[in-house]
Design a protein around this nucleic acid. Structure first.
Lengths: 217, 217
DNA sequence: AAATAATTCAAACAAACGTTTGAATTAAAC
DNA sequence: GTTTAATTCAAACGTTTGTTTGAATTATTT
């Protein structure tokens, strides 16, 4: 899923990106100093400016890296969805199945407590909230447009309207809220974290919501 | 709704809090310097440490202020909900109506483009994402517990289960996502902002979702 | 093996930061 | 009106920040 670089032959450049991804995600861009990144990456202070030019450009490089890895991760789901969307005489049942699969994949990627999950999710969340680079690809969730189209098929309402896009956003919102307002959600749910039991329960609730909304609504 | 202090008699302390609320919300805690706050509040640099003790304590003072104002704003809805919840022989229809009212109020508070709305929403969003003070009241959304209870009444499932709490969270998630991932949502919806037309459409979609989930699901 | 390029390193830079100080000023209490 | 307390102010403090420098080292090319 996520490329693990060979720790033996890893370059200083890549080492910096991986450490910066962690630190920027955990503490936020301006709460991480170049010195902290370099110390943890075991490189000299000047290495960041040598390899990237500035702290800003390092941040963009990390965002580019996350963006490309994310696209790779979503690729299979996107192709499955496009196959359904290009099938002219398809049924809503197929589209619903693909949609549910995408959403459950997203829950598995974003919600559970796991180092790997959190590494990506935290960086993306911070990026989208306010540390964003204008017009960066990481701001766009390619799944939302696809979900909106799938909704059109399911509801036999085969147009790309704003209403379908909003509906897609409310569906993803049900998932994303557990990542984006994570601490708050834990307090409100009175749980200590998102283990397998909690994640499954969340998936089940969202799954039922989607089925109800799209087939009975 | 929001107390407008008399700009003639406003104290240095209050002026600092109001400016800090704006700046912290817009740029984030560590991207705002004491000097910027003091310049904009037209007070001396030392005023923050005189009145609050430190930048950290100013931040907590702002969070306290936001928390108290927020509770004031939610008070009417909370009382209405409690009235329904305490009515032993109530019907689900009443509870559903109160719930829809709460959610639509939340949309109106958080979603539309308005200086007043954004002032509060941005600070709370940042606070909950990662600039939080552990255990601060602002981390808890008092509405979520109430919504979970209302769901119990509506679904005639009168227990405070984790599943009801998760369902409440997914309902609020549909609203909050438009605030928390605002820039991303605008890109994905292909809109320039959240005017009245967009806000009404969002309200309509979420309203239908809730009715469908809670009465047909 | 020599020459060239790429990379690493310790040291230093100016700028911005949160905070402190002690005197000057204003407000309150008596 | 005098005294006391509260507040404001300009100036300076020590750190930390991102960045630069030029020499030392390593890798690549010829």
């Amino acid at each position: 899923m996520i490329i693990k670089l060979d720790p033996e032959n890893i370059s200083s450049r890549d080492q910096i990106i991986l450490i910066a991804l962690d630190l920027f995600g955990q503490r936020g861009y301006s709460n991480v100093s170049i010195r902290q990144v370099c110390t943890q990456a075991k490189v000299n202070v000047a290495a960041v400016n040598y390899h990237f030019g500035s702290k800003d450009k390092l941040y963009i490089a990390v965002a580019d890296y996350v963006s490309s890895q994310l696209m790779q991760h979503l690729n299979a789901d996107i192709e499955a969805a496009n196959a359904v969307l290009e099938d002219t005489n398809n049924q809503g049942a197929q589209a619903l199945e693909v949609l549910l699969h995408i959403v459950e994949n997203t829950v598995d990627l974003l919600v559970p407590d796991s180092e790997e999950s959190e590494r990506w999710a935290r960086f993306i969340t911070r990026f989208q909230l306010g540390e964003a680079v204008p017009d960066h690809a990481l701001l766009k969730n390619p799944m939302l447009h696809i979900i909106a189209q799938l909704i059109g098929v399911i509801k036999n309402n085969n147009t790309d309207t704003l209403e379908n896009a909003i509906l897609a956003q409310t569906i993803m919102g049900q998932v994303l809220i557990f990542r984006v307002s994570r601490v708050s959600a834990m307090i409100n749910l009175n749980i200590d974290g998102f283990g397998q039991a909690e994640t499954e329960k969340i998936k089940h609730v969202i799954r039922q919501n989607i089925i109800t909304i799209l087939t009975l609504g």
